[in-house]
Design a protein around this nucleic acid. Structure first.
Lengths: 348, 348
DNA sequence: CAACGTTGCTCAATCGATGAAGCAACAATT
DNA sequence: AATTGTTGCTTCATCGATTGAGCAACGTTG
């Protein structure tokens, strides 16, 4: 607990004195290269035992200052409020630790200023790599890292100044749209054009997904209604308001929807439940991203799952072996039926 | 990017040479106490400008080594796979930063070994406080911290060796149970005993919630069926298997359930959907914890929301002002109707 | 003009761990 | 006996930032 005079932490000098030896011998023993430094195993044992007894913990600040490599790896993440980012963070931590790296993660709440501040702070802590996940301005972060000689990587949203690992949004969206259209046809007898909702028209992922959405419609010769592409932002409220506005303007709403994230889906489901539209005929829905409860809502929610493990494999491939320039690596998302997805949830 | 000869980072010595002054002047200017050290504002400005130009970033390892305080605060968290922990982490980060503390968070995936290892690593990084969230063995962590003179705190699950901040599980569970019973009565005409599912019989929270569950039944004079208290663990699969086993053993299942976490609720909802029980009469459900999609499932899912902000206020109250011994602080959870909860989701 | 105060800096020790260089003691080889 | 090799350590500079102590230059006061 909280002592008034904080216990002075044991250092290698304390251990050296206790063992009647020198600090450098203690250091050599405790960081494992005592054989290289020709310390006798007797002394090694004695020091190890003393360290144990004294509850010695190395001072990383001192150690890292002296070494050339920090073995610290940073990640910036926008939110912890959905399975996708949660899974990214958890997988990242695990994979970093497997490599003997120490992960530091900061949540920037989609705030560009905080992103930059967080990046600078991480540089102060001597991170060796910085992974920007879903950053609003990844290139800015790459510039800051570049100036400090620190490697950076973009995950989820691409940039132009560092290798970017993202989902194959176009192909994923095309296939998701195709599936929604098939479900729609099965339910309604004929394929009818869908609504696209959620995301920002300015962000790369949304642009690509809209492109896939259009392509899937074109594939079966169905025309997309331009007024039904609602890239209103990600927040649930935005989706809700956007749907409300559409319902005021049009006499009939589309019978199927492509929802661009689970976050937007929250708003969509809420509106469907509240508004009283769709009482008799619930719409056919597909969502780009996965959530276990959302998968249980309604009876026909098709969900694509982004391949988090695959993306992070690619991230660490770059970190472990390097990558050429600002390459763009696209990882195919995963399609599974909702029950199967639940059974195999790796984060569960 | 990845340069072959890593750019040597700018230090205060480099800046000192550029400015034609000493490192100590640079240090004084950059850490803001140049007035105290009587540096002229001219020189201060010059140094500031140079630092900006050179993209100088302080070396925290060096700075922290010299200072006595690290201003680093650690948190251990079991998972990132639900809103509760996600919200805890996000709020913790924000509040830490507001206080000029640097938060380090590690996810230990409910692995006791990893918890201990993570705690030790955090001590190496000279954390000033360690918050153990939902730790399997909080006292072990408190011991480790105590030996190093570092303050520790338990969040969500209590321990006996450090101040613990938890939800008022008993009162929360009693009220949640009361509400489920009321819903059940409204739906079925009479109050019938409920099923309790999820959590570990050995963990404090579960014990308290079962106690509240029993109390609410006693309050209205309904007997609890002991075979219907299924503390089978948190994982969805466990809940599912547990329900399946019960369905095999009994002819009739309870018409209402108290589900001990959203994680368990995943399994419960899955089983309900798959098993074919409850086809005509969906059970009345209450869940200790909140999830936006779960709130939209069925029509009568009552959810308690743990007061994350309140709990973290208490955490930082202890950190800012200290606490006496291993006190137990219980924060009342929040009851809201599901629509209201959605509207006011602070994490949305 | 001597004494003292103020301004604006610099010097050097320090935090704890690391590792190259060096050194004493002894063994083995010629 | 002299040389060389090996073992098992110690010494000391170093990483970058911080800070108490000190010092030169100038102004002010009696």
């Amino acid at each position: 607990m909280n002592q008034d005079r904080p216990i002075k932490k044991t250092t290698i000098y304390d251990l050296a004195e206790l063992a009647g030896t020198s600090a450098s011998a203690v250091s050599a023993v405790l960081n494992g290269n005592w054989k290289k430094r020709r310390i006798s195993s007797q002394l090694a044992e004695k020091i190890t035992r003393l360290a144990e007894e004294q509850g010695y913990a190395i001072n990383m600040q001192a150690s890292l200052l002296r070494r050339e490599k920090s073995k610290i790896i940073g990640m910036i993440v926008p939110k912890y409020d959905n399975r996708y980012f949660g899974s990214i963070v958890e997988t990242f931590e695990t994979m970093a630790r497997e490599r003997g790296l120490f992960p530091i993660i900061t949540c920037t709440r989609r705030d560009p200023e905080l992103e930059v501040e967080a990046a600078r702070t991480m540089l102060s802590y001597q991170v060796e790599w910085l992974v920007s996940t879903g950053a609003t301005d990844p290139d800015r972060i790459s510039d800051i890292c570049g100036a400090a000689g620190v490697g950076s990587l973009n995950l989820d949203l691409p940039g132009t100044k560092a290798p970017s690992i993202i989902s194959d949004n176009f192909t994923g969206a095309r296939e998701l749209t195709r599936r929604i259209l098939v479900n729609s046809e099965r339910k309604l007898g004929a394929a009818r054009p869908l609504l696209f909702i959620g995301g920002r028209g300015s962000d790369h992922n949304t642009v690509e997904r809209v492109r896939g959405f259009r392509a899937a419609h074109a594939d079966i010769g169905v025309a997309v209604d331009e007024r039904h592409i609602l890239t209103c932002g990600y927040a649930p409220e935005k989706a809700e308001m956007s749907l409300q506005a559409l319902a005021m303007a049009e006499r009939e709403l589309p019978s199927g929807m492509f929802v661009n994230s689970t976050i937007s889906l929250e708003g969509v489901m809420r509106w469907i439940k509240r508004s009283g539209h769709y009482v008799n005929h619930t719409p056919v829905i597909g969502c780009f991203d996965w959530d276990p409860f959302a998968a249980l809502l309604g009876d026909e929610i098709e969900m694509v799952r982004q391949d988090v493990q695959g993306m992070l494999n690619a991230v660490f491939e770059v970190i472990d072996h390097g990558a050429k320039g600002a390459s763009l690596i696209e990882i195919p998302p995963i399609f599974v039926d909702s029950n199967y997805a639940l059974i195999n949830d790796p984060t569960a």
